[in-house]
């Protein structure tokens, strides 16, 4: 079953399209990473999916229903981000009780054990928490609610290294015991790539790539060697990124469609093949220029 279906989804703010005909589907019980540069509409997208804002045009279905103002979506979806609103008059332990009444799958024991593990004082108030502690508390709500669709928008903002590690481990352990559809948006693909099954890469409000993470790692390859030799191999190939290294060495990233014979021939010619990290590839793909920041300084 597809938990999320988007078809030509568009959202405009002040006549400017943030989402620009976004189309993708997400299957049940998959963990998908939502990746894109600042301001491409990741947060807008997850807010539409959670039913908090309404799309401008196009089709969006969550659990085969239209999510905006939908009670079924609200009860089965949770959006964890740093803007989660909690009533300021309630203490942390009271917030857990209120959350329990909201979410049918809520696990109070898990919530309380996590609260204790991360040494929260149950009688504190949410707005007095620091940035990292706010993210940690929000994450506890996100995990314990066990919503069939759990959306985490930059969940580790402000968390220290140890808490991040604990968080990803807790997420994986709870997911294995209680599989559900999880969508995580993050700027740090290298931090989350291990726990992902798929990656959804967004650029200019459109789907740029929707691949499994292991395919993404083998999707592209970098060639490094003498410029003239590397250039020869770039003919008729779409170069994703290239950079001059040292005096006469060129580093170029292309789609990996080389045959074994191609590779052996290139190797003999002195070209080195270097695998490209998934996080680097995403940066290259979402750059507007082929040379990145270096292009700004080229005059």
């Amino acid at each position: 079953m597809n938990v999320i279906e988007c078809n030509g989804l568009t959202k405009a703010y002040f006549r400017k399209n943030v989402l620009n005909g976004l189309t993708f589907t997400i299957e049940e019980n998959k963990i998908t990473g939502l990746i894109g540069r600042n301001g491409v509409g990741k947060t807008t997208l997850v807010k539409i999916l959670a039913g908090l804002i309404k799309e401008t045009s196009g089709e969006v279905r969550v659990f085969e229903q239209h999510p905006f103002n939908n009670l079924y979506t609200s009860a089965n979806t949770i959006l964890v981000d740093d803007q989660m609103f909690f009533p300021p008059a309630l203490q942390l332990h009271e917030l857990l009780e209120v959350a329990q009444s909201f979410y049918p799958n809520w696990d109070m024991e898990l919530a309380q054990r996590l609260l204790q593990y991360f040494s929260f004082d149950p009688s504190h108030y949410h707005q007095t928490l620091s940035k990292g502690r706010t993210s940690t508390f929000n994450m506890i709500i996100g995990l314990a609610s066990r919503c069939s669709l759990t959306i985490l928008d930059e969940p580790t903002t402000g968390m220290d290294e140890a808490v991040r590690k604990d968080f990803y481990r807790a997420l994986m352990k709870d997911y294995l015991a209680h599989p559900r559809t999880i969508l995580i948006s993050s700027h740090h693909l290298n931090e989350i790539e291990d726990i992902l099954e798929d990656v959804l890469l967004i650029k200019n409000g459109k789907t740029l790539l929707h691949e499994s993470i292991s395919d993404l790692k083998e999707w592209a390859i970098a060639l490094q060697g003498a410029s003239t030799v590397v250039q020869k191999w770039l003919v008729e190939r779409n170069c994703i990124f290239q950079r001059q290294v040292g005096k006469d060495t060129l580093y170029a990233v292309v789609r990996d469609d080389f045959t074994k014979e191609n590779k052996e021939e290139a190797l003999r010619g002195g070209v080195e093949f270097i695998p490209v990290k998934a996080s680097d590839l995403c940066v290259y793909l979402t750059n507007d220029t082929k040379g990145g920041i270096d292009d700004v300084f080229e005059r």
């Binding site: 963990i31 990803y168 994986m172 291990d194 992902l196 099954e197």
Partner: peptide, 17 residues
């Protein structure tokens, strides 16, 4: 695949692969 996923904190689909 689930034991491997738990041991290494990786996606079970990756472990299955």
């Amino acid at each position: 695949q689930y034991q491997l996923a738990e041991m290494f904190t990786i996606n079970p689909a990756t472990a299955a692969k």
